[in-house]
Structure formats: structure tokens, C-alpha cells
């Protein structure tokens, strides 16, 4: 399978297989007018299989959202056909409007204009809690 290389933009690599569509949605890639390639289940020596996203445009990337979804992702920055930087991701301390609180008793369940905010409360176990009701995020995926 041939996919054109990127001239200026990003190769988001080492995405856990199956998570690329979520990233595509959260980064709003459907709104872009440039070439975007989404590759799922690519062969990977380390991971067995992985997803990759290629974006042929230098856009502002929400690295917090990417780190929240999977901090093992590598973001390769491409300039003039060359990878000039490999950005490693961290678990962000806070994410806004990346995930929704599922607690039916949370104030966000009735006030839809409120931002959905989650704070990292346990780094070791990657536990995020809702800013409002402090419920833990059950399914970060």
C-alpha cells in the first residue's frame, strides 16, 4: 500500500491499534482541506500492529489531547520532507472537552454548555477525575 510522504506536517506514529479514529475526531481532522492519511493495523515490530495518521499541513496540534488518549504516541514533525523533531508526549495534568463525564448525577449531565474538564489525580494508575463531581473516568479509550 503506497501513501504519499509528507512535505510539511506531522506523522503521528505508534498509535495503539484501533485508536486512530478517536484521534481523528478529537483533532478535528475532518475539517482540514489538506491530505490526511489514516492507516490502521499497520505492522509494528514493537506493538505487533499500530495505527498511523499523516497530516500534510502544519497545524496547531492538541498535544494534551493526544497524550491523554495514549502517551506512548510519537509525533514526528516534518519540514521539507525531513523529520526535524520527534515529540514525546506526557500525561497532561488537565484535559478540556476531550472526554465526557458519564456520572448521571454530575452537573454536566444537565448543563450542556459547561466545559468537560478532567484532572489527573493518580499518575501511576493514569486516573483522571471530573473537575465537578470527581468521578473517575471509567473508560479513557
Amino acid at each position: 500500500m503506497n501513501i504519499d510522504s509528507i512535505k510539511n506536517g506531522y506523522v503521528i506514529d505508534h498509535i495503539k491499534a484501533g485508536k486512530a479514529m478517536r484521534i481523528y475526531d478529537i483533532l478535528g481532522l475532518a475539517e482540514l482541506d489538506c491530505q490526511v492519511a489514516l492507516i490502521t493495523n499497520a505492522k509494528s515490530k514493537k506493538q505487533g500492529k499500530k495505527d498511523i495518521i499523516k497530516i500534510d499541513k502544519d497545524i496547531p496540534l492538541n498535544l494534551d489531547a493526544l497524550g491523554f488518549i495514549d502517551h506512548n504516541i510519537t509525533v514526528n514533525v516534518v519540514k521539507d520532507d525531513i523529520i526535524v523533531e520527534k515529540r514525546k508526549l506526557n500525561l497532561p495534568q488537565r484535559v478540556v472537552n476531550v472526554a465526557k463525564c458519564t456520572n448521571p448525577r454530575c452537573i454536566t449531565s444537565i448543563e450542556k454548555d459547561l466545559d468537560q474538564v478532567f484532572n489527573l489525580t493518580d499518575k501511576e494508575n493514569e486516573v483522571y477525575r471530573c473537575l465537578y463531581c470527581e468521578s473517575s473516568l471509567k473508560n479513557k479509550e
Partner: peptide
């Protein structure tokens, strides 16, 4: 007092 959790914070 509010039945929804987080309402006083808001």
C-alpha cells in the same frame, strides 16, 4: 444544596 454533583463548584 443541589442534587447534581459539582453544582456548588459551578
Amino acid at each position: 444544596r443541589h442534587p447534581k454533583e459539582g453544582a456548588p463548584y459551578v
